[in-house]
Amino acid sequence: MSVEESTDDEAIESLLDQPARVFEHLLDQQEQFTEEETAELKLAFSRLVEMEAQPELIDAP
C-alpha cells in the first residue's frame, strides 16, 4: 500500500487512530478470502480489539 497517492493527509493520519480501519485496509489487499471469511475475520478482529481494551475477556470462550 502507498498512501502517497492520497490527497487527504488528515484522513490518512487519522487512519492510525482506528485499528479496525487499518485492518480493513489490510483485508482489502487480501484476495484469497471469500466474503464470508472476510466478515468472520472482521468480527474476530473486533473481538480482539475488545479483548485488548478489556483484558478480563481474554480467557472467555
Partner: peptide, 13 residues
C-alpha cells in the same frame, strides 16, 4: 510493521 508502513508514508511526506 504493517501499521508503521502507513506511518512511514506520512513521515516521508
Amino acid at each position: 510493521r504493517y501499521a508503521q508502513s502507513i506511518s512511514l508514508d506520512i513521515l516521508t511526506r
